[in-house]
Each structure stands twice: as structure tokens, then as C-alpha cells.
């Protein structure tokens, strides 16, 4: 049962397989994001309260969701790498971190731009989600800083994996404590009892963008892991054979 797992974790096999997998993520991802963005920006009706300003959710919500998702992917693969000593899953964690930081930054920026017409300020400290996203961004920065500070790549993998798991325990606590701080943000509209509080013409493009962003994230992670694997295995024979098929090494 575990042979497929070990096979997948072997870098050359992963490198070959991932080349075939990327289109399966990229094509549906691009299609969904194109549909979702077009339908969201042009077809969906304007909100009766927020006017056209609400349309920023088509970027804001998927980015905010992926900032959390990416951390989960990162922490779980770092944990797998730490426990079973699988180098490939450390490479996944390393590849996911900058993407997660970028999604977090995107969510913060769009949230701040959205806040300008809605609350009248670019930044509202009283809003718990904005504040916890900011802390999330700092956690990503800390993780990446620790990784780059350690020269030995094996040590960097394992030390940052410990940090990722400590962060995974802390993030729910951080969210809760920032939440306790009182809220200005509008309540949850997507996940709540009795279905989403949003007409379907607005909802479907949003869902399409969420799923589409996730697929694109998958394609990006795979691409980044491929380069990461090539870099880490640069002294191995299979990488040489791949890059220099004629074998004319110095």
C-alpha cells in the first residue's frame, strides 16, 4: 500500500508526474477564474448598499481563504516531512510559504481598499479579520526568515517545520483573541446557517473564483516544487541527465 507513496516521494518520479499534473490544475483554474471574474465584474448585479464596491470580494475572499489554506498545506507537509523524513514534503512547504505570504498580502490590500469606501478609512484596527491577516503575514515572514537564516538546507527544513507546526497550534488562538477584541467587520455572508446571504448571480462567480484560485494555487505550488526539487537535487545524476542529455559535462 505504501509503495505508491514512496514512489511519489522520490524526486525524479515526482518531477515526471508533476509535469503531467500541472495542466490538470492550470486549465480548470484559468477557466474558472476567467468565468468568475467576468461574471463577477460585469454580469452580477450591483449591491443595493455597497454599489459596485462590493465586487472586490471576487479577489478578496479567495485570497483570504487561500492565505489560510496555504498555511494548512505548509504546516501539514512540514509535519509529514519532519515525522517521516520525506524531503519532497519539505520542498512543498518551502514552495508554499511565499505563495501564502502573497495571498495574505493580497487579502490585506484588497481588504484595505474595500475598507476605504465602506468604513471611510484605509485601515481599521477594530476589525478582527484585517488584524489577524496582518499577524498571519508576520507569521509567514518569520517562517521564511528562519528558513533563509539557516545555511544547512536539511536543518532549515526541519527547524522551519517545527516553527510551522507551532504556528498551526497558535493561529486559531490568535484568531480567537483578535476576534475577542470586538468587531466592525460585516458578519460572515458565505458560511452561515440557512445558506449564504447572497443572490446566486453574485454567489456563483464567487464560488468559481474560490475554486479557480485554489486550482491555480495547486498549479503554482507544483511548478515551484519542481524548481525546488531541481535545485535541491542539482548534484544528482538524474538532474544532469535531464538537463544535459548528451552527457557533455565539462
Amino acid at each position: 500500500m505504501w509503495t505508491w507513496f514512496h514512489k511519489l516521494a522520490s524526486p525524479p518520479h515526482f518531477y515526471r508526474l508533476s509535469a503531467k499534473m500541472i495542466p490538470w490544475f492550470a486549465v480548470p483554474g484559468i477557466a474558472l477564474v476567467v468565468y468568475g471574474s467576468y461574471a463577477g465584474l460585469f454580469l452580477a448585479p450591483a449591491d443595493y448598499q455597497q454599489g459596485d464596491a462590493f465586487r472586490i470580494i471576487y479577489v478578496h475572499v479567495p485570497a483570504a481563504y487561500l492565505s489560510m489554506m496555504t498555511y494548512m498545506v505548509m504546516a501539514i507537509s512540514a509535519g509529514i516531512g519532519l515525522i517521516w523524513r520525506i524531503k519532497l514534503s519539505h520542498a512543498v512547504a518551502a514552495a508554499a510559504a511565499p505563495l501564502g505570504a502573497w495571498f495574505t498580502f493580497l487579502a490585506l490590500m484588497t481588504g484595505s481598499i474595500w475598507g476605504r469606501p465602506m468604513w471611510g478609512t484605509w485601515w481599521e484596527w477594530g476589525d478582527p479579520r484585517l488584524t489577524s491577516q496582518l499577524l498571519m503575514l508576520f507569521i509567514y515572514f518569520g517562517y521564511m526568515a528562519l528558513r533563509t537564516a539557516i545555511d544547512d538546507p536539511l536543518k532549515a527544513d526541519r527547524a522551519s517545520a517545527v516553527l510551522a507546526m507551532v504556528g498551526a497550534v497558535n493561529i486559531p488562538i490568535i484568531h480567537f483573541s483578535v476576534e475577542w477584541w470586538s468587531s466592525l467587520h460585516q458578519g460572515a455572508t458565505l458560511v452561515r446557517e440557512g445558506g449564504p446571504a447572497m443572490p446566486v448571480e453574485m454567489l456563483y462567480p464567487l464560488l468559481a473564483n474560490i475554486v479557480g484560485f485554489t486550482f491555480l494555487f495547486g498549479a503554482l505550488v507544483l511548478g515551484r516544487v519542481r524548481t525546488e526539487v531541481l535545485f535541491r537535487e542539482r548534484r544528482k545524476r538524474w538532474v544532469r541527465n535531464l538537463l544535459l542529455p548528451d552527457g557533455d559535462l565539462e
Partner: peptide
């Protein structure tokens, strides 16, 4: 690690926010 002290703050401060809050 070199420059460990700045790194320590960077790594620990965001995690310590619940305590501060």
C-alpha cells in the same frame, strides 16, 4: 545562528500576540 536576536523577535512576536491582547 548569526543575527539570531532579530530573528527570534520576528518569529516569536506574532505568536505572542494573544498573550499581549
Amino acid at each position: 545562528l548569526h543575527r539570531g536576536s532579530a530573528l527570534l523577535s520576528l518569529v516569536i512576536l506574532p505568536l505572542a500576540m494573544p498573550i499581549l491582547i
